[in-house]
């Protein structure tokens, strides 16, 4: 298909690529190793003063592949990712042991009970103040009712028929 990794695996040249063919194998390991191999084959003897240049090229190539791999969306992988049972059990065991050892501050674990007036210094003065005015109360009620009726009337405005009835004959 002509992508930059198509020479990595010789069998991919023979087989027709299909929807399940991975265009990028494992950019972390494959591309770097294959890049080194390819450059050795292509250039024959690797001479000293261009080794640094090749390394720069390879690291640049690696970065580009990494960026592309990050953007690739492997739709096939979404539903088949399952760990081996032993690996799952091992990891769960490690996590359980680690959580035993990790220090979790008590301030996080203590369940905070809400104190409604804890930052109010003079609670009696606030509580004994007159309540909101009737006008404010009416405003709040009217606004809430308007919002509620507006919410219930969210609908599509019918202007034209959507379905074309195809006449017979």
């Amino acid at each position: 298909m002509g992508c930059c990794c198509s020479t990595e695996d010789s069998s991919s040249l023979q087989d027709e690529p299909n929807a399940h063919t991975r265009l990028l194998q494992d950019p972390v390991s494959n591309s770097y190793q294959t890049g080194l191999n390819n450059s050795a084959n292509e250039y024959g003897n690797s001479y000293g003063n261009s080794v640094a240049q090749k390394t720069d090229d390879q690291s640049a190539q690696y970065k580009v592949l990494q960026q592309i791999a990050n953007k690739v969306i492997d739709v096939g992988a979404l539903d088949c990712q399952t760990l081996e049972e032993h690996e799952y059990a091992e990891r769960a065991r490690v996590y359980a042991q680690s959580i035993n050892k990790i220090h979790i501050p008590q301030s996080i674990l203590r369940k905070k009970k809400p104190f409604l007036l804890m930052d109010v210094s003079n609670a009696e003065r606030i509580l004994s103040a007159p309540p909101i005015s009737q006008a404010d109360y009416n405003l709040m009620t009217a606004a809430t009712e308007n919002l509620s009726s507006a919410y219930h009337t969210i609908q599509v405005t019918h202007t034209k028929d959507l379905v074309v009835s195809l006449g017979k004959g």
Binding site: A96, I99, N100, K101, I102, H103, I104, I108, L109, K111
Partner: peptide
């Protein structure tokens, strides 16, 4: 410690 973290989650 897991018991504390788990019991916190349980309380939530």
């Amino acid at each position: 410690m897991i018991e504390d973290a788990t019991s916190y989650m349980q309380s939530v």
